[in-house]
Design a protein around this nucleic acid. Structure first.
Lengths: 347, 347
DNA sequence: GCACGTAATGTAAACGTTTTCCACACTCTA
DNA sequence: TAGAGTGTGGAAAACGTTTACATTACGTGC
């Protein structure tokens, strides 16, 4: 009984025959219901439902010349786990897409040299009719490529060094860290260290700018020895914190460009018997789920991943619908969420 | 210059004309190169390369009656982050698939009632020609459905309550926890608690069986008060550990059905000034990246996510190629990796 | 030198849609 | 009552492939 030969899939012809109309009418019922009389419409719909008719997507796509699919490429570093940020984005995208009748094609590729090839495969192979590009870089060859070829896409994040306008949704990392830094300054901190993200990433520059701006406005000098760059992994946060704490003069607060590194910092503190939020304040960025459960719970800047994904879909749909680029550029201001890892400096 | 109208995409006709052959020949060059003379073959290939010809996938799929796409549905719980296990699986799948010329269609849906509908959409809509179903359950309606309809698929995990054979790749959780438990017993532990996974998940039963088996063989009684069930989240591990430690009689070791919960347990221990591996031993399951960086580093059972994904693709390909189900059932034995969170019981 | 297999190519028919015409039957309006 | 609209539905042509079948040309064996 199982594994039986699949029944001859019902096609539009079958429905038409059964309903006593032409295939054109069946198609119309499904695509332009108002162009067919109510009686035949219901009759056809009834037959279609009874037969369980589902238009063959390939016939449809071929005829329409549309892929009805949007693409997302996820960089998967060979050694480490891929960033779970992408999974959240995926979840956000998924919802809106299925509503719009679009499919989501996911490609994974090692970050680096192969990446652009991956995009090429998708667009030149006509696999997708639009793309979401995530984690933008300052020089972003992917964006340059897509712009060059006129492929519809939306970016999650801006790309500062690309002059041609393109659709994006960005979270204002500058604002986020401006406020975070102000908060530390208000608490009385003056010796603030900064663990940044790889500088080719676009958000790295913004978050850094927010930090600098707040420091400058408060006329507090930034100590170059306390400005380091990590690779976004927990491990790198741990290592860099060790380094900062080994220096002759140590900071009273550490701002980290993402939560994973901040969690590494907390671990490094604990390893020396220090406690985040007491001897040293720590603030992260992202508000990943773990942030609630660290010890102490991590103060951070909240990124609404899921909502971002949903909005990106809307924007891509709009773009495909012909909405001009300039109306598809948004920057959201993130919220600072204070938990337990920040406090006044201990003198 | 950017956003220019996309050039008229080159089709097979164009290549044929340019090379002075029929379209059939062009198609043959690409699909059955041996059936065309070397001279014309190279000529056609040359022209195709020059023009950047890429067969339109929709034409191809329509003609061949194949979707050339395999599907994966990821459950995305509304409140929490989706499990990053799926992202790793994705990465593993991705590699093999693109080599095989298959696309990967990803759907996300809230777990529960909607899930089967999601699968139906994919198969009945003829979007995919095969599926990977992950995180199998004991009663798995997804598997029942796919079997019923004769849709090719491979499962990551078995499904104990389904009698019809189906292709799967499973990691032997029973072996894994059998060994982990033996290890704890050998260290001298007798008061061992068990934080299990939701019992509808298939792996939950296996891991539990491994624990029980080892305990029975050692003639150590399992204390029912120390057997609890979590929901795989760090939070639930934390909460359940609190409960275990509040009881009048406390365990000297806690075995957790996944790493996330184990990490929650470590946190709970720390919250009361205890240290994992000293006052209480903790062993997890999965070997997620964080496991290396907890304090102390987590002892756990390693799951080779990436390799699993790669092998699943091979198996699915084989299945599509007609290899019989019985040859596509594998169980891998996992490795116990001991780090710092286990040690002899303190008397 | 004739039949015959074989290698190389072309012709044309699918695959399942959507959509552009066109035809027909009405209903209005003049 | 003729003419023009209007609502409804059918016929047929695409969309870009692959492939079954037909055709040609060429050796080979007798």
């Amino acid at each position: 009984m199982s594994g039986r030969i699949s029944p001859p899939s019902v096609d539009i012809r079958r429905v038409a025959a059964e309903a006593g109309v032409s295939i054109a009418t069946v198609s119309r019922v499904l695509n332009n219901p108002e162009r067919v009389s109510p009686q035949t419409r219901t009759r056809v719909l009834e037959v279609a439902a009874r037969l369980g008719y589902r238009p063959n997507p390939n016939g449809k796509r071929l005829r329409k010349g549309r892929a009805e699919t949007i693409g997302l490429v996820i960089p998967s570093p060979p050694g480490r786990f891929a960033d779970s940020f992408f999974l959240e984005l995926l979840a956000g995208l998924g919802e809106g897409l299925s509503d719009a009748g679009l499919d989501l094609l996911v490609a994974t590729c090692p970050p680096g040299s192969e990446e652009l090839a991956c995009y090429r495969r998708l667009v030149e192979g006509k696999k997708v009719e639009g793309l979401v590009v995530a984690r933008t870089r300052r020089h972003d060859e992917r964006i340059a490529y897509l712009l060059e070829h006129g492929i519809p896409f939306v970016a999650h994040g801006r790309s500062d060094l690309i002059s041609t306008p393109f659709p994006y949704l960005d979270i204002d990392g500058q604002q986020g860290f401006y406020r975070a830094t102000q908060h530390l300054l208000n608490l009385g901190h003056r010796r603030i260290a900064y663990i940044g993200a790889p500088h080719d990433l676009n958000f790295a520059a913004h978050r850094w700018a927010g930090f600098q701006q707040a420091m400058a406005e408060a006329r507090v000098e930034v100590n170059p020895a306390w400005v380091v760059e990590g690779d976004l992994s927990e491990e790198s946060g741990y290592r860099l914190a060790q380094k900062l704490l080994d220096a002759p003069e140590t900071p009273t607060a550490i701002l980290c460009a993402n939560d994973l590194m901040a969690i590494g910092v907390l671990r490094a503190l604990r390893a020396r018997g220090l406690k985040g939020g007491q001897e040293v304040s720590v603030i992260g960025y992202d508000d990943i789920p773990q942030a609630q459960y660290t010890d102490p719970p991590l103060s951070t800047v909240h990124q609404p991943f899921r909502e971002t994904g949903q909005r990106l879909v809307e924007m891509l749909l709009a773009r495909l619908g012909g909405v001009p680029v300039t109306q598809l550029q948004e920057v959201w201001v993130p919220k600072l969420v204070l938990r337990g890892s920040d406090g006044p400096p201990q003198t």
